[in-house]
Amino acid sequence: MKIAFYGSSLLSSYWNGAATYYRGLLSDLARRGYDVTFYEPDAFDRQQHRDIDPPEWAKVKVYPATEEALRSVIAEAGRADVVVKASGVGVFDDELLEGVIAASRPDAIRIFWDVDAPATLSELRQNPGHALHRAMPSLDLVLTYGGGPPVVEAYEGFGARRCVPIYNALDPSTHHPVPPDGRFEADLSFLGNRLPDREARVEQFFLEPAARLPQRRFLIGGNGWETKAMPQNVRHIGHVYTRDHNAFNTSPLAVLNIARDSMASTGFSPATRVFEAAGAGACLITDAWIGLELFLKEGEEVLVARDGKDVAEHVEALTPQRAKTIGEAARARILAEHTYSRRGAEVDAILRQEAAQKRERSVA
């Protein structure tokens, strides 16, 4: 089957947390025989900060952020068996959603793939005129980056025929243990962009522990933190390219995961960083959120913090040997249960089922 996927970016993770997710899932689907074309706008300086070259497993069409180019890429939806509009493209989102649905063939599977379901659902609640409300009756599927039962129930309440969470996972060919790198040495490291619904939790779970432990070394990577006041023992290194994520995860004593406000309140929303860190064998400390036990076991495969004091206590008590033991246990669990090969098999089964149902309806 031919997949036309309209998303933020496959080639760049710059201000684009979904890049690893897209790459892991789509490369696996390609290995299963799908013909994938990914459409991404030339916007937000992402093309100037590419992490990968165009891959062999997908055609990537980068289009100018203009209405003329938009019409051209929308028209190509008509050649696909599966048409996917992802959330958060950032350029002409509403026009893309309505356009690719209108351009797709009647027998095509139409999907809205939400990589930030809590935010999208909040918009749907607040805006009765949201484009997704209008599009919902024409969609065959809503797939989500996470969210579990709360997200499924909410989407079904808004009229989705079917909503299925497809969680983040690990691609062991790209995220794996590597030797430590002096650039990323620290007692605790955090990687994430500065966003309005994350900043307060970064202050609580990262900057507060740093202030509590002035003798310890803290490292923060990601965009937007240049103007943020931080304790003297915190080092900021800016954007970290995906090629350096393995070293970023293997070099410190522990790595911190901090969910955004909406993700933490919704639960069942492990970030890509969780699987990247586990894949590298890092000792992960995470803030608490509902559903964590589906992915990692507290105290054995991950350390869980309810506040900044907990983070500081974990760092103080952690020895290199215990960090290694936790990291190895996390890696074993994720490799066994949470790879993109497993997620790809899940999506493949869903698409084949939808295709069969569409054929049955057309005959009837």
Rank of each mutant, 00 (worst) to 15 (best):
M1P: 15
K2L: 06
Y6K: 05
Y6C: 08
S9E: 07
N16W: 02
A19Y: 05
A19C: 13
T20D: 11
Y21R: 03
G24W: 05
D28S: 10
L29C: 11
A30V: 07
R32V: 12
T37C: 02
E40F: 07
A43K: 11
Q47M: 13
Q47E: 14
D53G: 13
E56S: 13
K59W: 11
P64R: 03
R71C: 08
R79I: 09
A80T: 07
V82Y: 06
V82K: 02
K85A: 11
A86D: 14
S87A: 05
V91D: 02
E95I: 00
E98T: 10
G99K: 00
I101R: 01
D107C: 02
D107T: 10
I111P: 04
W113K: 03
D116Y: 08
A117V: 09
N127H: 11
P128H: 05
R134G: 15
M136I: 02
P137V: 03
L139E: 00
D140E: 05
Y145G: 04
G146A: 04
P149N: 08
V151S: 15
V151C: 12
Y155T: 01
E156W: 05
G157V: 09
C163P: 14
C163F: 05
V164I: 14
P165M: 02
I166E: 01
A169G: 09
L170R: 02
L170N: 02
D171H: 09
H176R: 10
P177Y: 01
D181N: 14
G182E: 14
G182P: 07
D187H: 09
S189V: 13
S189R: 02
L191W: 03
G192T: 06
R194T: 14
P196A: 01
R198A: 15
E203S: 14
E203L: 12
L207K: 02
A210R: 04
R212N: 10
P214N: 05
Q215E: 15
F218R: 02
G221S: 13
G222Q: 06
G222S: 03
G222Y: 05
G224F: 01
E226S: 13
E226P: 06
P231H: 03
N233V: 09
G238S: 06
G238Q: 05
H239D: 14
V240N: 02
T242C: 10
R243S: 15
R243M: 12
R243F: 08
D244N: 09
D244E: 13
F248G: 10
S251V: 11
N257C: 12
D261A: 12
S262H: 10
G267C: 02
P270A: 05
R273F: 10
A282F: 03
A282W: 01
G291D: 00
G291F: 04
K297T: 15
E301Y: 07
D307G: 12
D310N: 08
A312W: 06
V315W: 01
E316T: 13
A317I: 02
P320S: 03
R322V: 15
R331S: 08
A332I: 07
A336Q: 11
Y340C: 11
S341H: 13
E346W: 00
D348W: 00
Q357D: 15
E360W: 05
S362T: 14
V363A: 15
